[in-house]
Amino acid sequence: MRTPRNIIFVLIIVPCGWILELTSTVAPNWRTIHNITGQPPDLALHQGIWDICRSFTASRDVICNHEDIEYFNNQIIEIARRMMAASLIVTLIGLSVATIGTHCWTDEPRCMVASLGGLLIFCSGVLAIIPVAWYHYILPDINSPSTDIRVGYCIILGYTGGITEVLGGLIMISGIYRCYAALNRGDRAETSTEQSSTYSVRKTVIPSVSINKSRRSSFPNSVESLKEEIDFRRAKRPISISYSL
């Protein structure tokens, strides 16, 4: 039995979502701050959950490993670190489990194993969406040296990767019903084939032998009985005697 196409599609898009989440986690661009007081006007501050970088528009220089203890002490930063790391790990586990349940080296897909993998992938997407949405919601409230705050591309990548994994997990879980239905149809088809083959053998072989035997055995007996009956009737005919005067 072949792996359903929707599950193969999930096994393709989930790694893409994982790469987007990894980029969102590592890249220092959850928000961008411009027009900082006392700094050059072309300076932009890129803040992430692991690192902070400074870039200059005129020279295109990027300097990372900028320390900001007040920023990293925010509660959302620590929560986002843990949840994004957990999401990446759970995605790999769910993808491995789903691959074991649906790969072509098995004669039939293991629907329960594949459904467990889909559930793990769904949970990993939720783990990624929660910190990204929370950070996006309190983006202006996090302490900043300027009021010109813009959303970074990591927020967009985090949303996209998390939603991709949530949809992939739902598609895989919903595809398990089709897997079970296909297996049941295959079992019914095999059972009906066995029954029809058994019936055809009994119908063609056994009755034909009995009919031939009956014909062969009954034909000579019928001829002999017919001859005896004719002889018996001839013997019973009355003999007529005529007297002449």
Results as ranks from 00 to 15, higher is better:
70 E>G: 11
46 H>S: 05
13 I>Q: 07
95 L>P: 00
67 E>C: 08
82 R>I: 11
37 T>H: 09
27 A>W: 12
53 C>P: 01
90 V>T: 13
67 E>V: 15
81 R>I: 07
28 P>V: 14
13 I>C: 03
77 I>V: 13
31 R>P: 00
65 N>K: 12
97 V>C: 06
21 E>P: 00
48 G>A: 07
84 M>E: 05
35 N>P: 02
18 W>V: 01
41 P>R: 00
68 D>F: 11
41 P>K: 13
60 R>A: 12
61 D>H: 04
30 W>A: 02
43 L>R: 02
43 L>H: 08
84 M>R: 06
80 A>V: 07
38 G>M: 02
44 A>K: 03
24 S>G: 15
49 I>N: 00
92 L>F: 14
99 T>V: 11
14 V>N: 08
24 S>A: 14
21 E>S: 07
48 G>T: 06
81 R>M: 10
62 V>S: 01
80 A>N: 07
47 Q>I: 07
29 N>S: 15
61 D>P: 01
77 I>F: 10
46 H>V: 04
67 E>M: 13
23 T>G: 15
54 R>N: 04
99 T>W: 10
35 N>V: 13
66 H>Q: 15
85 A>L: 14
58 A>Q: 08
79 I>F: 04
60 R>L: 12
31 R>C: 00
27 A>M: 13
15 P>V: 03
91 T>L: 08
51 D>P: 01
55 S>E: 14
52 I>H: 08
25 T>M: 13
43 L>Q: 11
62 V>H: 03
61 D>W: 08
59 S>E: 02
19 I>D: 00
76 I>E: 10
63 I>L: 09
39 Q>W: 11
79 I>S: 00
49 I>G: 05
92 L>C: 08
32 T>C: 04
